[in-house]
């Protein structure tokens, strides 16, 4: 006997909802969600985790680069110090 399509879809969404609701706490606790049984059956959540890991990798690689402030900033700071603002 096959289940109605809507019923199956609702169950998938319910599973996804439960899985995704648990993500903040589990990720925050350092859990590897790749091993969760839901990941074996749900492409949507696999894709989500993949994206988040991809972004995390990109952040790790790209974001630590530092920016230089404008040259004039030091002059402003010096002026403020001379004025007794510091």
């Amino acid at each position: 006997m096959t289940e109605p399509e809507d019923f199956v879809q609702d169950n998938i969404d319910a599973d996804c909802a439960e899985f995704q609701a648990s993500m903040p706490e589990r990720i925050g606790a350092g859990e590897d969600l790749q091993t969760d049984p839901h990941m074996l059956t749900c492409e949507r959540c696999r894709s989500l985790i993949r994206d988040l890991e991809y972004i995390a990798d990109a952040v790790r690689q790209l974001m630590p680069i530092e920016e230089e402030p404008r040259e004039e900033l030091w002059a402003n700071i010096q002026l403020a110090i001379e004025r007794g603002e510091a």
Binding site: D13, C16, A17, Q20, A21, E43, R44, C45, S47, L48, R50, D51, Y54, I55, A58, V59, L62, M63, I65
Partner: peptide
């Protein structure tokens, strides 16, 4: 939004620093 409904498209290509910033 949570990621329900239609399957998500995976992030494609590479992210450059400017885009990320």
């Amino acid at each position: 939004a949570r990621s329900f409904g239609a399957p998500d498209l995976r992030l494609t290509g590479s992210i450059d620093r400017m885009t990320l910033e």
